[in-house]
């Protein structure tokens, strides 16, 4: 990277070009700084998944688990990977509200007038999502190990990587939504909530889809989270070569590619 120095306030700086990747790195580190300094947001983001694990998990074991032929620790093998996907979904789908706030205050506008490329601003923000979601996933896994949850080490690492890819896509879509509805900020939450729960239920995170009606099974095929949830279950169980894993990667990568493309396009068009 080319650099310049300034010897004193009266010296004019000669502006230089930075690479796109260093721009992404700068934006990402800026976004991460408050998270690292005040990690409470990561902890707060865990409350909902832990509530599901603590209150919904036992119900699952007592009803669906018994009917489905699994109980006790086996329920956790089925439920914990799904909770990791849920944590990713909740965390990244709301992240656009941070951008909304920066649009309201003027910080987003200030960055738009700098030489940072517009696409790097969106990609840097989206990549930042990886750190809190991986941290949260690790905490959930560690919390559940004493309760009998087993995590294949290689599968767990691959599972976290898949969540990271998915999170980048979902985060980008959340940013795109925030930019698209900037004239009516309340619309962000309306759309986010409207989309969130169908995606969540149709993914089979909370209850097995096998017992659902046929139309639900068909609809779930179009929910990328379903494929990621099934892949995470296979990965944490150590079934690394399962077809479900390949399908999960495809769904996660597609979500990331589409999310980034939509996000960058929305940001670029917002100033036309």
């Amino acid at each position: 990277m080319s650099t310049v120095t300034v010897d004193g306030p009266a010296r004019t700086v000669t502006p230089v070009r930075r690479s796109w990747f260093s721009d992404v790195g700068l934006v990402m580190s800026r976004e991460l700084r408050p998270v690292v300094r005040e990690p409470f947001s990561v902890v707060f983001g865990l409350i909902q998944p832990l509530v599901f694990l603590g209150l919904f998990g036992p119900l699952l074991a007592g009803s669906v688990g018994a009917a489905g032929g699994f109980s006790g620790a086996e329920v956790w093998q089925w439920f914990v990977p799904a909770i990791l996907v849920m944590t990713t979904l909740f965390g990244t789908s709301t992240t656009g509200s941070n951008l909304q706030f920066e649009m309201q205050t003027g910080a987003h506008e200030r960055l738009l007038v700098t030489p940072l490329s517009r696409s790097s601003q969106l990609v840097g923000r989206s990549l930042k999502e990886i750190v809190p979601l991986v941290a949260q996933a690790v905490i959930v896994v560690l919390v559940m190990l004493p309760f009998g949850f087993r995590a294949d080490p290689v599968g767990a690492v691959l599972g976290l990587a898949m969540l990271a890819v998915l999170g980048v896509g979902l985060g980008s879509l959340s940013y795109a939504l925030a930019i698209a509805v900037r004239k009516q900020e309340w619309m962000f939450w309306v759309v986010q909530q409207t989309v969130l729960f169908p995606l969540l239920i149709l993914s089979g995170m909370l209850l097995p889809l096998e017992t659902g009606p046929q139309w639900m099974k068909v609809a779930s095929a179009f929910d990328p989270l379903r494929w990621v949830v099934e892949a995470e279950r296979a990965l944490f169980a150590g079934d690394l070569t399962s077809g479900a894993v390949a399908a999960g990667w495809l769904a996660a990568v597609l979500t990331a590619v589409v999310g980034l493309a939509v996000g960058v396009r929305t940001l670029l068009r917002s100033t036309d």
Binding site: P34, A107, R110
Partner: peptide, 12 residues
């Protein structure tokens, strides 16, 4: 550029 809003991120 110094815009009408606050250019610095409030969490920074």
């Amino acid at each position: 550029y110094v815009g009408q809003g606050n250019g610095a991120g409030h969490q920074q």
